[in-house]
Amino acid sequence: MKNICVFCGSAKGNGETYLNLAREIGEKMVDLNYGLVYGGASIGVMGQIADSVLEKNGSVIGVMPKSLVNWEVEHKNLTKFEMVDSMHERKQKMYDYSDIFLAIPGGMGTLDELCEIVTWAQLQYHRKPIYLLNHEGFFTHLINHLEHAVKEGFLKPHHMKLIKVVDSAEDFFEDLKI
């Protein structure tokens, strides 16, 4: 079984759209025999995606630093929960457990994880696929910024291609079949 690492928010966002997206992704992952690797929280979009995978008897690995266990509310019912010492160790463990990376709506932590995994790919530390799900245009401003960074010479065009932008969960899973 391959694992998809999903970078997402511990908040739920406004409205139900982000929770619905997380549920859709989690259910489809199990249907296609993918396991979930994520930040280990029981709340927000993170909690929703984990719960949706677990409800269908899928595999979920959560990784969380000790300092966030009480603050972020760790998920108690995961297939595997790993407590680590730092955010750096968290990202390394998430990388180690994963075959594919998917960023969906979230905040600064989501952006941090996405940027670090793209940087590792840019430096040729890995060749694992990286996806950015631009649900309802959530990441459009980020995509525009990255294109501007290419135009201004701070990001090479081929590095921009390290991120595959998709507009829906359906597009993401279709692309995995290729």
Results as ranks from 00 to 15, higher is better:
167 D>W: 09
141 H>N: 13
14 N>Y: 10
62 G>R: 03
64 M>I: 15
95 Y>D: 06
48 Q>F: 05
21 L>T: 04
34 Y>G: 01
133 L>P: 06
63 V>A: 06
23 R>W: 05
26 G>Y: 05
160 M>V: 02
72 E>F: 01
47 G>T: 13
120 W>F: 14
39 G>V: 12
59 S>P: 00
102 L>P: 03
147 E>R: 14
86 S>E: 07
37 V>F: 10
159 H>I: 00
54 L>K: 13
127 R>E: 14
10 S>L: 02
70 N>Y: 05
168 S>P: 06
146 L>A: 14
30 V>K: 03
46 M>A: 12
87 M>W: 01
172 F>N: 01
70 N>R: 11
172 F>I: 05
6 V>A: 09
56 K>F: 12
169 A>G: 13
114 L>S: 12
29 M>T: 03
13 G>M: 03
95 Y>I: 01
54 L>S: 08
113 E>L: 08
104 I>G: 03
171 D>K: 13
127 R>V: 08
48 Q>S: 14
2 K>Q: 15
74 E>M: 14
161 K>F: 07
169 A>K: 10
92 Q>S: 10
111 L>S: 06
12 K>A: 10
49 I>E: 06
23 R>L: 04
134 N>P: 05
132 L>H: 07
43 I>S: 09
61 I>F: 11
92 Q>I: 14
161 K>C: 08
2 K>D: 14
116 E>R: 09
57 N>S: 15
67 S>G: 07
58 G>I: 08
140 T>D: 14
85 D>Y: 03
76 K>F: 02
12 K>T: 09
118 V>G: 01
28 K>N: 06
163 I>D: 02
131 Y>Q: 05
47 G>I: 10
171 D>A: 14
18 Y>Q: 12
36 L>N: 04
9 G>K: 04
94 M>S: 02
81 F>T: 10
6 V>F: 06
156 K>E: 13
98 S>N: 06
2 K>R: 15
76 K>M: 06
8 C>M: 12
121 A>K: 11
171 D>F: 02
158 H>W: 11
10 S>Y: 08
147 E>W: 02
162 L>D: 04
74 E>G: 15
177 K>A: 15
130 I>E: 00
78 L>C: 09
152 E>A: 08
26 G>A: 11
43 I>E: 12
33 N>K: 15
164 K>D: 06
14 N>R: 10
112 D>K: 06
164 K>N: 12
30 V>F: 07
44 G>S: 08
25 I>F: 08
138 F>M: 10
123 L>H: 08
63 V>C: 07
56 K>R: 15
142 L>C: 09
124 Q>C: 00
20 N>S: 15
32 L>F: 12
48 Q>A: 15
11 A>W: 00
16 E>T: 15
28 K>Y: 01
150 V>N: 07
60 V>C: 13
93 K>S: 03
71 W>E: 14
24 E>W: 01
107 G>V: 04
133 L>F: 09
103 A>G: 10
138 F>E: 11
140 T>Y: 01
41 A>N: 06
158 H>P: 02
147 E>M: 11
46 M>Y: 12
61 I>S: 03
86 S>Y: 06
35 G>M: 10
72 E>H: 04
137 G>R: 10
105 P>K: 01
177 K>I: 11
103 A>N: 07
148 H>C: 04
21 L>K: 03
31 D>E: 15
20 N>M: 14
135 H>V: 00
104 I>W: 01
154 F>R: 07
7 F>A: 03
159 H>R: 00
118 V>W: 03
77 N>I: 08
15 G>Q: 06
17 T>R: 14
88 H>G: 15
80 K>L: 15
